[in-house]
Design a protein around this nucleic acid. Structure first.
Lengths: 342, 342
DNA sequence: TTGTATGCGTTATCAT
DNA sequence: ATGATAACGCATACAA
């Protein structure tokens, strides 16, 4: 049904080679035939078939990116940066979210067959699968994921930020008993945050922190906080795996009549735009999400277009943003040097 | 460089056709050769090239979706619903964000050449371009966009919700002077909201509302609110084009020492998760974003796989969610029947 | 059961 | 300046 170069050639009364020459501006064509061909193209509304071009040119002109999920501003940021770089470089973007689907492996293999390079995010599929696909010769960049030998990896700094966070909470506010809300098994970043927190707590000789396993949506944080309240073992400070979990804790605390930070301090991670607007403003850790996608795309493009693989991994800096939910007060979020509670 | 079916055939010592038969489970193959072929596939790490398949099968097994932008939970929701439907039906998803790029038209034409169907969202490209592409025979579904004859359109209800909102603000709270913050020229939905608001205000014989043109990020709402404050013409109620703008207004009001809703009432649109957590909780309009992507994908798939084009447009219902920022009080957000201000 | 041959749409390399 | 033809990777109709 669609118009092919053959149709145009017949309509213009020339060979397909000539049409191709006009179309791509390569080779010599007489002005007269050029005119005829151009007219035929316009007349028939001819659009070159990308599949034919891809087959001939031995490239898809497309990049793939595999997300574990789409929800939340974190993925939007990565997507934004990635798409921008890819399109600017002349590549289309094919996305896939695994959602822990059992058939994820097959879907990713399928995806690998239609792109020139692949970004694999976090816990989307096993390392073995990634290695298998890489062995087929397709360039792969890991994003916010544990390293695999021979593949570049792009991620945000987590441990240092976690240590700074705990250092502040103990040093400035005097908190000693912490709990972490999240599931280190589900995400590489969260695992690193949990490890950083544990390491800092050991370093300061504080009592072992509790790990409250929960997923990353607001409802999960809310449920976890309610469970914690029901157990009667509310620590001084709740460190949340991300801001959505922290917002869920906010909900639960409001429902239970507990005040933040007077009754319990709360921190998030991601520093979403609304972190500054909730009551109280949320102390969080800002990550350069857009840059994450940006650098991942750039690294991938380098691997595709250069014959030498750089293999350079990138770790982008995170920054702790102190607000009121940890106990800091005032407009400039000055630290309270005395402990908040008597 | 990549492994082709030819390589596998040579390695297994069989013909290409036999490999294909094994690969697709079609036709008769002796157990012995099947084993050899399977071993070769595993050994060489063969992944079928989708381009070859597409060329032969006359289909891409891919759907395209064109966004104006990615920022915000609205697009995440649409994306989530769309990707889920597409992948479930065996299609890959190719995304493009126009970002008001001048070369958008070319990018979309390009995209059209590598998918079996296309969803076009909002103000991404001119109607003429959409019609041109449709003429090439590729199925198109419009999403949150003004209708074009002959193309199905999926969107959320806006006018009715706008009227309900204004009816509440005037009827229950007694507000008479409104301003709308947003740019009706930039988005079809926002245009409809603005029209619905105007229509309701006429209907209730209230003074003409002000239109404060601004874009849709938090910073834009903040700037618009500051401008409004500087002008000295603060209306009783600010109707924001979306929640992010409303959050920007929150910022500005806090910075100016104005209270919501005592000094000025504020409403948003989208009902993002944090609308309930900001101070005061934001009155907003909830849209089924995920379902939007879901229905768009489903409609597109029907067009592709059925020969009869349904052409049915879908309008999904929106729902006003009353919270404190409009003047409602109490947990259940009961209406205040008297005017809030003396 | 297996192999051969053709066509999908495009570009590139020849030959004319 | 132009036309004929091969090649890309795959699936399939047909021949053996």
């Amino acid at each position: 049904m669609p118009v092919t170069i053959k149709d145009v050639a017949k309509y213009a009364g020339v060979s397909i080679a000539t049409v191709s020459r006009v179309q791509n501006g390569i080779g010599q064509v007489s002005p007269e035939t050029q005119k005829r061909v151009l007219a035929a193209i316009r007349q028939l509304n001819y659009i070159p078939n990308r599949v034919g071009q891809a087959l001939q040119g031995q490239r898809h002109a497309a990049l793939g990116i595999v997300f574990p999920d789409f929800s939340g501003p974190y993925y939007s940021g990565v997507m934004l940066g990635f798409e921008n770089q890819a399109v600017t470089a002349g590549y289309s973007v094919v996305v896939l979210a695994t959602h822990r689907r059992p058939e994820s492996t097959q879907l990713i293999v399928d995806l690998a067959g239609r792109v020139d390079g692949l970004v694999m995010m976090d816990r989307t599929v096993s390392n073995d699968t990634v290695t298998d696909i890489a062995r087929c010769g397709i360039p792969i960049v890991l994003l916010a994921r544990s390293a695999i030998t021979g593949m570049p990896c792009v991620r945000c700094e987590n441990r240092q930020a976690a240590e700074e966070l705990v250092g502040h909470l103990n040093g400035e506010h005097g908190y000693r008993k912490f709990a972490f809300l999240g599931n280190p098994d589900l995400s590489f970043d969260v695992m690193e945050r949990w490890q950083g927190i544990q390491s800092a707590i050991q370093q300061f000789h504080l009592p072992d922190p509790d790990l409250i396993r929960c997923e990353y949506r607001q409802a999960d944080g809310r449920q976890a906080a309610h469970d914690l309240l029901a157990s009667g073992q509310l620590p001084e400070c709740l460190l949340c795996a991300n801001d959505e979990v922290a917002f869920g804790v906010y909900q639960a605390m409001r429902e239970a009549g507990k005040r933040i930070p007077q009754d319990v301090a709360v921190t998030g991670w991601d520093d979403v735009l609304t972190a500054d607007l909730v009551d109280p403003p949320l102390t969080s850790v800002r990550q350069p999400t857009q840059q994450l996608g940006d650098v991942a795309a750039h690294t991938l493009l380098t691997m595709i277009e250069q014959t030498v693989k750089p293999l350079s991994s990138t770790i982008l800096p995170s920054r702790v943003v102190f607000r009121h939910s940890c106990g800091c007060i005032g407009k400039g979020c000055e630290f309270r040097t005395e402990a908040l509670r008597p």
